[in-house]
Amino acid sequence: MTPRQLHAFVAVAQTLSFARACERLHMSQPALSLAIRSLEDSLGGRLLSRTTRQVQLTPEGAALLPQALQLLADWDNVRERSRQQFTLRRGHVTIAAMPSFAGNVLPKILQEFRGRFPNIEISVHDVIHEDVVRMVATGRVELGFGFEPDGANQLRFEPLFTDRFVAIVPPQSPLAEARSITWAQLLDNNFIALQRPSTVRSLLEASLAERNMELRVGVECHQLVTIGQFVASSLGVSAVPHLCEKQMIALGARSVPLSRPSIRKAVGLITRTDQQLSTAAEAIRQAMVAAT
C-alpha cells in the first residue's frame, strides 16, 4: 500500500462518490480508479462495491477504513516530525565534553544556540577526555569536545583553538606574585596531578620528558576541581589547561603563566568519520566553529 492509494480509498469511502473524491483529491477519474484498483490488487480483494447508481463499502473496505485513517495520520505525523527536525524546529543532540570545556566554552555557545532554536533538546555529558573519545567512538554521542585523540582512525578531529597550560599555586605561595614562572620553579614544590590514564597527565609527562625533566607527583586525584581545592588549601601546586583558569581562581587558587617549556594542546571537535551528523548536531558544530 502507498499513501496515494490510501488517500484515494479514504476519499471514496467517505464521500461514497468517485466524482466528489476526484474533486477532493484534484485527480482525474481514471487516475482515481487506477489507484483503487491497484490497492485492491495488492490486498487481494474488493474494497468497494460500485454500480451505476451508488458506491458502497464491502465488509473488508469498512474494516480497512479506520485503519487507513490511522495510517495516514501516522504518516503525516512522521513526515511533519522529520520536516521539523530538518528545519530545526525540533530535535535532540547528545554531546560529550571535557569538564573544562563544558564549564567554560559551552555555556555561551549553547545559550546563543538555544535562543535561535529553543525546541532542540541538548544532553551534555561532562566527562574526562578519555570518556569523550570513547562515547563518540561507540556512537553514544554525536559530538565530542576535547583534545585531539591519538591513533583513532575512525574519528575525525576538527581543531577549534590551542590551549596552553598555566601554573596553579596557593594564594600564600611566593610564586603567586610572580608574573611568570618556569617548570623548574614549579616542580620544586609538591606537585598535584590527575591519576593515570589521564590525557592531561600523559601530555605533561611526555612534554617534560622531551626536555629531560621529570614530573614528580606528590598527590594524585581524579578531578580537576579537586586539584583546585587541594592547591587552594596549600597542599601543593599544579598545572592545568588555561580553560580551567577561572574555575581554579574561583576555588581560591592563583594562576600564573608557565614557560620553559610552554606546553600547548589543540582542543577541538571530535566526530565519527563514518557517521553523518543530524541537522541539529551540524548546526551546533557550525555555531562552535563560528564562535571560536
Rank of each mutant, 00 (worst) to 15 (best):
G61S: 15
A8M: 14
K108S: 15
R254G: 09
M27K: 10
I95L: 12
E40P: 04
Q14A: 08
V133W: 09
G91N: 02
A206K: 11
R90A: 13
M135D: 08
E210W: 09
V200N: 03
L204Q: 02
A96M: 03
L72V: 15
T162Y: 12
F157W: 04
G252N: 09
E220L: 05
S278G: 12
V141P: 00
D188G: 14
S38K: 03
V136C: 02
G228Y: 06
R196S: 09
K108N: 13
S259F: 07
I227P: 08
S259M: 12
N189Y: 05
L235N: 00
R164G: 02
N153Y: 06
G139Q: 02
T199V: 08
I227K: 00
G146H: 03
G115P: 04
Q172Y: 04
V10N: 06
L6Y: 00
Q84C: 13
D274T: 12
K246D: 11
L243N: 01
V141G: 02
P3E: 04
S28K: 14
R164K: 12
A19T: 14
R89W: 01
P99R: 03
S17V: 09
K108C: 13
S38H: 05
R156S: 01
A281I: 06
L155K: 00
M135L: 14
L34R: 05
P59R: 13
N77R: 11
S278R: 07
I128E: 07
V105Q: 01
M27R: 11
Q14S: 11
I227Y: 00
A176H: 11
F157L: 05
S17I: 09
A19E: 14
R134P: 05
Q14M: 12
A167Y: 04
N119I: 02
S123D: 07
A266T: 03
H125I: 06
A184D: 08
A167F: 01
L203T: 14
G139C: 02
F191T: 01
R156F: 02
S255C: 14
G115V: 08
H242A: 11
L65S: 08
Q54G: 11
A62N: 15
V256A: 04
M27A: 15
A97K: 04
I128T: 04
Q286M: 11
A290I: 07
L65Y: 12
L175W: 00
S262E: 10
S38T: 07
T15N: 15
L160W: 07
A193W: 01
G218R: 09
L64G: 10
I270S: 03
T2K: 10
